[in-house]
Design a protein around this nucleic acid. Structure first.
Length: 258
DNA sequence: CCGGATGTTCACCT
DNA sequence: GAGGTGAACATCCG
């Protein structure tokens, strides 16, 4: 799933649900919803969404009673409005049409529907999620905010960039891509970046998110070929490193990234 | 059968 | 408190 880019697509899709009252709610009994299923239905039936927002990978649908429905998509969650997917090709997810993977469904009074289809069930549905737990959104992060994310930390740069409480929206693929484009070693202690490096990284995060959004997804970065098995850096032809950093498989150029 | 996968969270160490 | 690791979640895919 969905990193920031994919969830932004879902957000745009979700705008199509605004003003359309909810008639019924169906929740997969195994789906991770930290509420009683009946409570979710009680809160949503009869309501309609008035705005669709996004912070990082969290999609927020503001309701006409002042509440908010929060949707997370895990690694394989897709969003469908009126049966149409917001995203066709989700890597690592299956794109087969399997209604049995529908974990959360809003049936609208006008006959339409909003559905979270998630084979692995790693997505989450939450009422009134705590938005304060998320850091600033990566799509618009500036040098000052990024400085606050990195300064004084001995943690690996990549692990810090993936920490949603400090910077919201980057996932494993985007984090590797921005480190590679910035020629920064993802294992380097975050606090060792100087002002110039932090400023360049902030710019690279914004431009990379925008560019991969135009290309169509987080998996369309220049580094993806190396992730898929090539052993040469697509820029210099040197050796590619495959390590685990921050608990995630990490691809980087052994010579360029310092 | 095995390992790994765009994620989050929690228990358990150091 | 700060971080690291590993497991768990559940399922598909190569």
């Amino acid at each position: 799933m969905p990193e920031l880019i994919e969830v932004e697509r879902y957000r745009r899709l979700a705008e199509g649900v605004l003003g359309r009252p909810i008639g019924a709610v169906t929740v997969d009994p195994l789906a991770a919803v930290p509420h009683a299923v009946d409570d979710v239905a009680d809160r949503l039936v009869g309501r309609s969404a008035v705005a669709a927002r996004r912070i990082g990978k969290l999609l927020l649908c503001d309701l006409d009673d002042g509440g908010t429905l929060g949707l997370r998509f895990g690694m394989t969650g897709r969003l469908l409005l009126d049966g149409v997917a917001g995203l066709d090709d989700l890597q690592y997810g299956s794109n087969r049409e399997e209604p049995r993977w529908d974990r959360f469904r809003l049936d609208l009074l006008d006959g339409g529907s909003l559905v979270v289809r998630d084979p692995r069930r790693l997505g989450r549905v939450e009422l009134d999620p705590d938005e304060g737990r998320l850091g600033p959104d990566a799509a618009t992060v500036g040098v000052d905010a990024l400085t606050r994310v990195l300064a004084g930390s001995t943690t690996a740069l990549k692990a810090r960039l993936l920490d949603q409480g400090r910077l919201a929206g980057l996932g494993n693929l985007l984090a590797d891509e921005v480190c590679w484009r910035s020629r920064l070693d993802p294992a380097r202690p975050a606090g060792t970046l100087d002002r110039r490096e932090v400023a360049a990284l902030a710019r690279t995060i914004r431009t990379t998110v925008a560019e991969l959004d135009r290309r169509g997804g987080s998996h369309l970065g220049d580094l993806q070929a190396a992730r898929d098995g090539r052993t040469a850096c697509p820029r210099c032809g040197g050796a590619v490193l495959r390590r685990r950093i921050g608990g995630r498989t990490t691809i980087s150029c052994a010579t360029e990234q310092r």
